[in-house]
Design a binder for these strands. Structure first.
Lengths: 221, 221
DNA sequence: CGCGGCCTTGAGGTGCCTCAACACTCGTGG
DNA sequence: CCACGAGTGTTGAGGCACCTCAAGGCCGCG
């Protein structure tokens, strides 16, 4: 079912949309093509990005479950979108979206709120890209992707989990770094016991406060 | 009058808001304070920014005439806003905005479109901050701030005008560079006849195509 | 005239990038 | 079973684009 909305609208959305299951690495949106579709992610992670002619790429965000993507006022998409892992989405066509927006103001409000939040995240990311060091960027990234705290009672000494379905290349393109710098920085954090690596796509945060300090530039060293 | 909307809504907005004239350097929004107001810029330029505890700052955008600012879903502002030059705004209070949104769906749609556009701009800026060189950043900035082409007939050989009401510090904080690098890069562009400096706050673009090539990384040299 | 704000220019340093080698995992096929 | 290659990640050595630090010029204003 289409996520992120209350039950009454849920039915309406489900009706107007079509469900799709996409394998990892599927191009959902191609930069510069006509903006015909609009998606709601119901499972998995999608990466959004922009590219330069010579291939340099910036990932502008990851869309997880509940997020909408593909909204634009232009006739063509100004960004690309590709699945990171297996992804389920609901797809709307443009005209369907238009009627939804006008017929259900409650849905339009929901969308306005989501886009407003995304804009705030984008501003935070601009601060990261423009003004933070590599260490600060990686620390911020790990913090943002940390799972919500365990429901208390246990997990205190365990450390909180970070899931990283994306590759080092994706992380680098998200943080405005190279894969080598990302790798080195994660290794350094591991060496100083701020985090512990399980495998490459799962990390455990040993000191959340330390990571928070790092992320905002309160680095002691 | 409050700009950027058609006549029917214009009157409604004007009625619900209060006009203010602010001198250069006025803090309109302070990061972290309760989000009580919402503005529409009717003249001048406002800079939006985020800061780190140690004072590093990233300007996330400039709001010119017609733009809205102060929208957020959180209870406090996640960013600051300060006037660049003398600025006129219409100010709404939160409850006023709420009623406007629900009573005039046409206005809500207008806002959704604006925020969607701002998000697209933010993504473009992330590409700039994460992946472009200093030359490419400055070239992109000048292109974006170029006045619309003269109504043809003249101005061809003249070169198109760029107005820069903000200081070098602001430009640096917007492009994720230092003032020295911005200054050096502008000097270099002048030296190679891509632009011509009138004074520090007005620049003339001699070759738009060259600037466009620079901005997207198609640098010949 | 002198001061402060803003900008420019130069010289040197450094954080991250580039280039390169190697380790690990996994699936494929001999 | 092992050899193999492709894809992904790690680590090291050296270089460079941009930052840092410093000096000086320009302009408006008291």
């Amino acid at each position: 079912m289409c996520n992120g909305i209350d039950d009454t609208e849920l039915a309406i959305l489900a009706q107007a949309s079509k469900r799709l299951t996409l394998p990892p690495g599927t191009a959902m949106i191609e930069e510069g093509t006509p903006a015909l579709s609009f998606f709601n992610v119901t499972s998995g992670t999608v990466k959004l990005f922009k590219s330069l002619p010579d291939g340099r790429r910036q990932i502008t965000g990851f869309a997880d479950v509940g997020h909408f993507l593909g909204l634009t006022t232009a006739k063509t998409y100004s960004f690309g979108a590709e699945t990171v892992d297996t992804v389920q989405v609901c797809r709307f066509l443009r005209p369907q979206l238009e009627t939804l927006l006008t017929d259900y103001p409650q849905f339009e409000r929901r969308l306005l709120d989501e886009v407003t939040d995304e804009l705030a995240e984008a501003q935070e990311q601009m601060l990261l890209l423009g003004r933070k060091t590599a260490r600060e960027r990686v620390a911020s990234f790990l913090l943002n992707r940390m799972m919500p705290a365990a429901p208390s009672g246990q997990g205190k000494t365990e450390g909180r989990l970070v899931s990283l379905p994306m590759t080092r290349v994706d992380i680098a393109d998200y943080l405005g770094l190279t894969i080598e710098t990302v790798s080195r920085t994660i290794s350094a954090l591991r060496r100083e016991q701020t985090i512990t690596g399980t495998d490459n796509h799962g990390i455990r945060v040993l000191s959340v406060t330390r990571l928070r300090d790092l992320a905002s530039g309160q680095d002691s060293r």
